[in-house]
Write a protein that binds this DNA or RNA. Structure first.
Length: 347
DNA sequence: AATCCGGGGTC
DNA sequence: GACCCAGGATT
């Protein structure tokens, strides 16, 4: 790549002077780096901050993580999304304990074999924690490099990402591996922003940027459109019996697997039928505010009902507000309904 | 190569 | 509403 040596040098210099002070940048503990990189997958820095510290208080070491109850881990991950991340994290922790004596292997290919560690995360841990010459290519890096070189290749293609992984690994500066990796991502996160507001006027590598030179920054990166979401229509129930609220564990597979939810069914089913199939003697049904929740590939349109029922069935758990909030992982999709239901409970 | 898997910020 | 994101596993 043209001017690559100079670009690397400028970028590292800029990063050293402008790096944000983040909790996981104050440590060289590979486990902490690992945890932060998993939490940061598809997730913004500000969202991760409160979770990172709290998680480490409960799981201060890889061995502690390996031995923590899964429900506890899900509660720690509650609201962060992509819950398979924390299951895979624990699987990997057990592997690290069993096969590596509780310390992460200082080897890219060994890291890559651990559950939940893909090309990006392996590169991030290798370069940041172990000063190994492996690039970490994420969405930020692809955007930065696409603009810097006015690269027309579609960044959603695996081939494009693979090419940048090789190219950037070959550019990796000895002694500044972690700074290079983090500098690229920091530039993407704070300067080379997506959409309409890249801050080219403060960019440390502007003079090398081909897209800037062509006055075409917003034409990069090139990416193919993504598929549209399907809509699902649900009836969701806040069922109450003697101040206890019904909670149901979701299936072990698929969306939000293993988390807890308010009982719900397809909107096509009549409400009294749904309740009777659950063995609930229906009481007074009050309408609650309708809710919409958007996932990556699904939209939930929820009609919501507050129902004071006459009996507790055995398919659900009937729990107090406090118990649920302290111990059960409830996905964000249900949070607003939960809040409204609890306030109705007060009356 | 396509699909599945959360959630929140921004314009 | 549209777009984006510090991705990886599964098929």
């Amino acid at each position: 790549m043209k001017d690559s040596k100079d670009i690397v040098k400028e970028l590292i210099q800029w990063y050293k002077e402008n790096a944000r002070d983040l909790p996981w940048r104050r440590t060289k503990n590979p486990y902490h780096i690992w945890l932060s990189e998993i939490m940061l997958q598809q997730t913004r820095v500000e969202a991760v901050k409160p979770y990172f510290q709290r998680f480490l208080q409960t799981c201060p070491t890889i061995e502690a993580l390996a031995n923590t109850e899964e429900d506890t881990l899900l509660k720690l991950w509650e609201g962060l999304g992509y819950y398979s991340r924390v299951r895979n994290l624990q699987k990997a922790a057990k592997t690290v304990v069993d096969e590596y004596g509780g310390a992460l292997p200082q080897d890219y290919h060994a890291l890559r074999k651990l559950k939940g560690i893909g090309p990006y995360t392996a590169g991030a841990i290798a370069s940041i924690a172990f000063s190994l010459p492996y690039a970490a290519v994420d969405g930020n890096v692809l955007r930065v490099m696409s603009r810097l070189t006015a690269d027309e290749r579609d960044i959603t293609l695996a081939s494009t990402k693979g090419a940048w992984e090789e190219e950037l690994s070959s550019m990796m500066p000895t002694g500044d591996e972690g700074n290079f990796t983090q500098g690229l991502m920091e530039l993407g996160a704070t300067v080379c922003l997506p959409n309409g507001n890249p801050k080219c006027e403060i960019c440390p590598v502007r003079k090398y940027c081909q897209a800037y030179r062509k006055n075409a920054v917003l034409q990069f990166p090139v990416k193919s459109p993504k598929k549209e979401r399907t809509k699902e229509y649900l009836s969701v129930f806040f069922l109450v019996h003697r101040k206890k609220i019904a909670l149901q564990k979701r299936d072990g597979k698929g969306l939000l697997s293993g988390l807890w939810q308010l009982p719900n069914c397809n909107q096509e089913k009549a409400l009294p039928v749904a309740l009777s199939e659950w063995g609930i003697l229906s009481g007074n049904i009050k309408d609650m505010k309708a809710q919409k929740h958007i996932f990556t590939h699904i939209e939930w349109h929820m009609s919501c009902y507050f129902v004071e029922v006459e009996n507790e069935n055995k398919d659900f758990l009937w729990l107090s507000k406090e118990t649920v909030e302290n111990e059960y992982a409830l996905p964000s999709a249900f949070k607003k309904i939960w809040q409204e239901g609890c306030s109705l409970l007060e009356d």
